[in-house]
Design a binder for these strands. Structure first.
Length: 298
DNA sequence: GCGTCCAGGTCTACC
DNA sequence: GGTAGACCTGGACGC
């Protein structure tokens, strides 16, 4: 049985540019059908009792959401729609960023294509765990670690798909489990500690979405978590809507050298000054600039 | 087949 | 505060 829901597409929104904004679409429980441009995700309700896979795609004026599996309750339906809004960042206002991008010849395409919304998970906790999985390893290993988390700790839906594990579920296994089963290596004790702290309420990553802390204070708080350094914190900041950090990693640096420095290595401060004109939006400007070519293939 | 390098870094000890 | 070295994994590459 399938049920279909609809959400209105906001102005200045591009489904493809949002889904393809970074590698998250490639990490479970996301799944992208690139041929038909349909994004799937496995949702769970507030109490992690009801679970279902849903597929989102765009029509002319709307986003269509098809939910498979058992009939969902009205409360769960509302949560799925709320999560879709969150994931696709339908309520983000990028008009100020587009105003800065438009006059720049190299950046005008961003506003022209409604790019800049970065796909994210329904919870900050999930984005936090996934971000730690991206550190100091290849993308292939990141995918493997995330897949292991979902397959070995997630809850199964009627259709056989798994959710991303809850903090409680992750707190129930040991560091040795993360090392042996998730193949997390030195990150193993970090995951065990993080899950315990979130499950017990000692830290609340979801509060980062609405905190009154300044960006530098929030970054400091994020870096208190083992496994979260400068890059990881700045990446997370982008996912909670703060773009003043560049989140430079080896891939971004290499792309910048190629595009703007004639293949020569330059200092991070040179990269920073290149995007200074974008003020608090500089991290997003850098990311869009470095990923522009991705969209040639879509 | 084997050894080495390195990839979407971070932590800790030491200065 | 700045820096060197250790830390897991697994794919790519050279031999």
């Amino acid at each position: 049985m399938k049920q279909t829901y609809f959400l209105e597409k906001p102005a200045n929104f591009s489904f493809k540019y949002t889904v393809f904004s970074h590698g998250w679409y490639d990490l479970q429980p996301f799944e992208l059908d690139k041929e038909n441009w349909r994004l799937s995700y496995v949702f769970s309700d507030e109490n992690n009792i009801e679970r279902t896979a849903a597929t989102v795609w765009e029509t002319e004026n709307t986003l269509r959401i098809e939910v498979s599996g058992n009939r969902v309750t009205e409360t769960f339906k509302k949560k799925i729609l709320r999560d879709v809004r969150h994931i696709l960042r339908l309520d983000d206002d990028l008009s100020e960023f587009y105003k800065l991008a438009k006059p720049n010849k190299e950046f005008a395409w961003i506003a022209g294509n409604n790019a800049g919304r970065l796909l994210r998970s329904p919870t900050v906790f999930e984005d936090l765990v996934k971000t730690v999985c991206t550190t100091n390893c290849s993308w292939a290993l990141t995918k493997k670690m995330v897949a292991n988390l979902v397959e070995k700790l997630g809850e199964k839906t009627v259709g056989g798909k798994n959710t991303f594990p809850t903090p409680e579920k992750m707190a129930n296994v040991t560091a040795e489990f993360y090392r042996a089963e998730i193949r997390a290596g030195y990150r193993a004790p970090y995951f065990a500690e993080l899950a315990e702290k979130v499950a017990s309420g000692k830290i609340n990553p979801e509060s980062w979405l609405q905190t009154n802390l300044s960006t530098s204070e929030l970054k400091r708080e994020m870096k208190q978590i083992k496994g979260v350094g400068n890059y990881a914190a700045e990446n997370l900041l982008k996912l909670v809507g703060r773009y003043d950090g560049l989140a430079l990693d080896s891939w971004l640096r290499a792309q910048f050298y190629k595009k703007h420095a004639g293949e020569k290595v330059c200092a991070d401060k040179d990269i920073e000054s290149f995007y200074e004109r974008f003020g608090d939006w500089r991290g997003l400007a850098l990311w869009c600039d470095m990923t522009e070519k991705w969209f040639d293939k879509t």
